[in-house]
Design a protein around this nucleic acid. Sequence first.
DNA 1: TGAAATGTTGGGGCG
DNA 2: ACGCCCCAACATTTC
Length: 487
Amino acid sequence: MTGTVLWYRQDLRTSDHPALAAACERGPVTPVFVWHPSGEGGWPLGGAAAWWLDRSLRALDADLSRRGSRLIVRIGDPAVELADVARAVGAAAITCSRRHEPSAMVEEERVQSAIEATGLRFERRGSNLMFDPFEVRSQTGTAYKVFSPFWRACLARPAPDVPLPAPARIPAPAAWPAGTTVDALALRPRIAWDAGLAGTWTPGEAGAHARLEAFVAGPVRRYGDARDIPSVAGTSALSPHLHFGELSPRQAWHASLAASAGATPATVAQVEKFRAELGWREFGAHVLANFPRTSDDPLRPEFRRFPWRTDAAHLRAWQRGRTGYPFVDAGMRQLWHTGWMHNRVRMVVASFLVKHLLMDWMHGARWFWDTLVDADLASNTLGWQWAGGCGADAAPYFRIFNPVTQGEKFDPDGTYIRRWVPELARVPAECLHAPWEASPLALASAGVTLGEDYPRPIVDHARARAEALAALAAISAKPGRPGTMDG
DNA sequence: TGAAATGTTGGGGCG
DNA sequence: ACGCCCCAACATTTC
């Protein structure tokens, strides 16, 4: 018995893949993806992510084929399917990269026990993180709940390894085991809503590297400033590639280092901001791994009792980009159309749902989960609890984004709004961010009738702000109980 | 990785 | 020349 079964999950790549590299040195490798439709931990794959996974699996199969291999697709329980594949090809071991979502860790342990009970070896090697979420610890040995000290601690650790190259050739088993097709997973949308996604993204390892190279060739050197302007392609847009493991974070890390080698201190600082964003990704994984209930429960338990509102019309208006606040609506429509939203705008729309509409952050988390191509349980949870003020390093309750001034600040000429809210395209910039304050004449000459072409604001900002402050002050006045959820 | 209210300062218009 | 007011600009505090 020789050879290895490689269990692919969220590491859909061939380069910088320690488990694959190690397996290639030992003999034949049988790459397997096992689909279990129920998903994990109550978060079944969202629609946009399913679209991505479909394409990513096809790309991976093609990449493997170019290296003399292929991807075996199975449907069912990984413990059963992996053992069956191993038996069919006569493999002695099964290997995978680690994941750190709580349900994935439980799954990994279960599969490992089941595999080892059949007499096969099971080996976990590498992961989609640069810093082990259980090894990064404060002076007192606890997990971090604040980003800055967390990231300082990460930077004090050994630097991320230089990425491994993809194996030129992946040794194939003597005979390929049976498998089904990617088609059979039925991941593609049944009605064609995915044109916007297809026009925006190229899932797969090659697409990931194309995007990384384009980013480090230019935008990364202005990242610190340009990342806040949603009409500019100043961010990397690597998040979905990183989520599915088409790209490893250390590949992005080292590419950014190379991009600022020998640059001025000011440029180096701009690029460091990008690595800090990779740090936020690590921080999200750290928090979820160490506080495993936070994907469904606020880290600050007093928020569990908060009297959130449940206004279905408000929720729907927010989801569809019909709140009457152009900057918010632009973001929500960009999300709906492309499966992605600029991070500056994510903060604003999240603040709007939680603080202006006083809706439970979980409503937002679920909507993002279904619509984002980069939907990642750790990052999504961190982001929403940050916005909700109920999580790690969270925005204090009184930090309420003004959707008008945020638009004026970060989309001053309205390019972003015009792109995603076309019915306002002809409204002059002075009144674009608050069209309800524009003169009827200005609106008429822009071809807009409020309440018909574009909604009036569904809530009044000043009033919503005052109500949120009053409601949130009530529970925030009481000091939290840090430590309650430790261990 | 806020916004708004409140306080302070200083230039300039003006009687 | 002087005091007064206005107000923009900036700083501080409060939510």
